[in-house]
């Protein structure tokens, strides 16, 4: 593996200064399940790894029924699904944390790393989008916030500017009569990368007959995970019905721009967007 330096940063400002001073060659190390592999395979040129796992703010895991969830950028998957209140509030995010790699990967990998790696197929990003998550970003000029759907700008590319790091994710408390769901298609039962992934969150009225609002997001069908905005909006105010769900699934298919690769053809992926969007919506509704 290429030679690099390692620093265990103790504060956000220390990590930000190191990032700012060292530019492109400095990378944040969270669980390392993407970064270490990329450096070993010479897919990323890194001169300095800044380990952020000792910084208090990136280890926060704080859920409150009113305030929602603050999820530190380095919190490992296994810690998230160990908290019952979080599992109940955000089942769609939990679906994703439980399918990333296997047990040993989930012992290190986190949602923040999954997001910052910005893979089009990243399993946590569609659930974050449908749950309305916001990125809390720290940089040389202070802190800013950004909705998750604007964070990824291309494969492996993010909206983080020079010197900036992700500190945490904020997810609003779930509305009453709402739930979420994420699923992916893979040829195996586990330990694989999504051919297509789909996440949905749905809020119903008190009678559980009418959709108040819904959000749909897709993985592995474009250079970045996609928020299917039109498909989401056309569900608002509709009765829960197969017809409404079919329409949303078709609208989601319309924005997919998949490629053909060894995991699947563009045609298969477009077909899967329809199937998985229906299942994600129905899955979320059944959980309400």
């Amino acid at each position: 593996m290429q030679d690099f330096s390692y620093v265990s940063a103790q504060t956000v400002s220390e990590a930000v200064s190191l990032l700012d001073e060292n530019g492109e060659k400095a990378r944040i190390l969270a669980g390392g399940t993407d970064l270490i592999v990329q450096v070993r395979e010479a897919r990323r040129d890194v001169g300095l790894m800044i380990d952020v796992k000792s910084i208090p703010e990136v280890n926060v895991l704080d859920y409150d029924d009113d305030a929602g969830l603050t999820l530190g950028a380095a919190v490992e998957c296994y810690k998230i699904y160990a908290v019952d209140a979080i599992c109940n509030a955000y089942p769609g995010l939990i679906d994703a944390t439980k399918i990333i790699g296997g047990t040993a990967i989930q012992g290190r990998a986190g949602v923040g790393g999954n997001l910052c790696n910005a893979s089009p197929a990243a399993d946590c990003i569609p659930p974050l989008i449908v749950l309305g998550a916001t990125c809390v970003i720290a940089g040389p000029n202070g802190e800013r916030e950004l909705p998750v759907e604007h964070f990824c700008t291309g494969p492996g590319q993010t909206a983080l500017e020079k010197g900036e790091m992700l500190v945490s994710l904020k997810i609003p408390a779930p509305a009453s009569n709402s739930s979420s769901f994420y699923l992916r298609f893979i040829p195996r039962n586990e330990m694989d990368i999504a051919v297509v992934g789909a996440g949905a969150s749905v809020t119903l009225d008190a009678a559980k007959q009418t959709i108040v609002s819904a959000r749909i997001a897709l993985a592995a069908v474009a250079p970045t995970p996609l928020f299917a905005e039109e498909a989401s909006e056309l569900l608002a105010g509709r009765e829960v019905s197969d017809a409404a769900i079919d329409e949303a699934a078709q609208a989601a298919q319309a924005i997919a721009r998949p490629i053909s690769d060894m995991r699947g053809t563009a045609e298969q992926r477009t077909h899967l967007v329809g199937v998985l969007t229906r299942r994600a919506l129905n899955g979320a509704i059944q959980r309400i």
């Binding site: 669980g31 592999v37 796992k53 490992e76 047990t103 012992g107």
Partner: peptide, 13 residues
């Protein structure tokens, strides 16, 4: 106390 892949952990960590 947590299972990990030691190939994906740095010794310095």
């Amino acid at each position: 106390g947590r299972l990990v892949n030691s190939c994906l952990v740095l010794g310095v960590e």
